[in-house]
Amino acid sequence: MTALIYSDEYMKHNTGNHPENQERLNVIVNSLKNKEIWNKIDVISPEPATEDDLLRVHSPSHIEYIKKFCDSGGGYIDYDTFAAPESYEIAKLAAGGAIKAADFVLKNSENAYSIARPPGHHATREKSMGFCIFNNLAIALEYLRNTHKIKKFLIFDFDVHFGNGTSEIFYSDPDVLYISIHQNPRTLYPGKGFIEEIGTGKGEGYNLNIPMPERSTTDDYIYILEKILEPAASKFNADFYFLDVGFDGHVDDPLSSMALTDKYYEYIINKMKNIAGFMSLILEGGYNLDVLSRCNVKIINALNNIKNEDYYKNELNVSENTKDTFNKIKDVFSPFYGF
């Protein structure tokens, strides 16, 4: 059975009426309890990441800045990233949740899902941004690489916003394949994540962006992912798989212009299970509480092989813009993968 890594302590990252607030986790936990899932899965408490864990990813000056910022009372780190007085410690706990999930997958050959906040994929080595303080996934990956000597990692990020922090951290790393599907960065924060951003040096070809046109549907996503995910994963042949989970591409989410429906989330879990076998999932965005409630139930049921609905159809209604996007990706990545 899937393990859920969670702590009520995450509520101490108190952001008030910010879109990334405590209610996001409350509705997920309550929905799992109401559906009688909570008591049927392993719920494991995280432990805080150590300073050594943080230092594998973030600079000493950045870590010290966040600590002092929170100790002095917190506030807005930038125009949209808030930290409470307790947020330094809770951000360490969120990173520790990602580590705990990764450890569980490695030791038990089962899936694990870290439901934590603050999220992480916008945080760079030197900067907290985009609601994120530390990069939870990157910290967990470097923990596995350093402690367990895992060599090759595949990250699939389907948050509607490009994970610029994760991309930047591993941009020249040939042992990390970062695949992100997100809204066209010309129309959405953080304004990066174009097809041409393919990595640099030895990492060239290992940063694969799928920028989707606004109003892309579940059919559009299925069409393009069916053509890209398995060939890239097969060629790369990772030793460990991370899934960055975002619900903000849903048609009802207030922070994007996409048109995904509930069935996408079951589709992508089943797709990634077929590719990876077992994986570590890390919660990122998603700001409609009803969507978070419903779709997290679907994800965990899919991880536990409980089928909710028909999540795939052979006849897809695909936009010409999506087909054009795939053709551009194929042109750029033809030297690297056999799409």
Rank of each mutant, 00 (worst) to 15 (best):
179 I>Y: 08
296 N>W: 11
333 F>P: 01
45 S>D: 04
117 R>F: 14
179 I>E: 04
92 K>F: 11
178 Y>F: 12
123 A>N: 07
73 G>Q: 08
339 F>W: 06
29 V>Y: 02
210 I>Y: 09
153 F>N: 08
73 G>K: 08
336 F>T: 02
51 E>Q: 09
123 A>T: 10
20 E>T: 10
339 F>R: 11
131 F>K: 00
174 P>K: 03
32 L>Q: 00
292 L>Q: 14
264 Y>Q: 00
212 M>Y: 04
159 D>R: 13
205 G>Q: 12
57 V>L: 11
286 G>H: 01
213 P>L: 00
80 D>V: 05
322 T>R: 03
27 V>M: 03
228 I>N: 03
236 F>L: 10
99 I>V: 09
308 N>Y: 05
160 V>F: 02
47 E>T: 13
117 R>W: 12
159 D>E: 07
301 N>A: 04
246 G>W: 11
171 Y>A: 09
240 F>T: 04
38 W>N: 00
21 N>R: 01
68 K>M: 10
55 L>N: 09
337 Y>I: 06
18 H>L: 07
309 E>W: 02
145 R>C: 05
122 H>S: 12
190 P>M: 07
58 H>R: 12
6 Y>L: 03
37 I>W: 05
64 E>R: 13
102 A>V: 01
103 D>C: 11
126 E>W: 09
89 E>A: 14
147 T>A: 10
83 A>N: 08
133 I>K: 10
75 G>V: 09
183 Q>Y: 07
153 F>R: 07
275 I>G: 09
79 Y>A: 08
52 D>M: 12
89 E>Q: 11
109 S>D: 15
84 A>T: 03
170 F>D: 12
230 E>K: 12
11 M>W: 03
181 I>A: 12
33 K>I: 01
88 Y>G: 05
335 P>M: 13
121 H>Q: 10
48 P>F: 06
205 G>T: 02
66 I>C: 00
189 Y>L: 08
326 F>G: 06
95 A>N: 02
46 P>D: 05
248 D>Q: 09
200 T>F: 13
27 V>G: 07
269 I>Y: 01
114 S>M: 05
178 Y>W: 04
177 L>G: 02
245 V>T: 08
262 D>N: 14
122 H>K: 09
234 S>R: 13
59 S>F: 02
286 G>L: 08
208 L>A: 03
251 V>M: 15
68 K>P: 00
339 F>C: 10
180 S>M: 05
222 I>W: 00
323 K>F: 04
104 F>C: 08
100 K>T: 14
67 K>E: 11
59 S>I: 02
250 H>Q: 11
239 D>L: 00
166 T>M: 14
221 Y>K: 03
13 H>A: 03
313 K>Q: 13
134 F>P: 03
76 Y>H: 01
125 R>A: 01
317 N>V: 15
72 S>W: 01
244 D>W: 06
295 C>L: 06
22 Q>G: 15
338 G>I: 15
92 K>C: 09
188 L>P: 06
240 F>Q: 11
195 I>S: 04
319 S>C: 11
206 Y>G: 13
40 K>N: 15
76 Y>L: 12
203 G>V: 03
163 G>D: 11
165 G>Q: 00
125 R>G: 11
101 A>G: 02
68 K>W: 07
245 V>M: 08
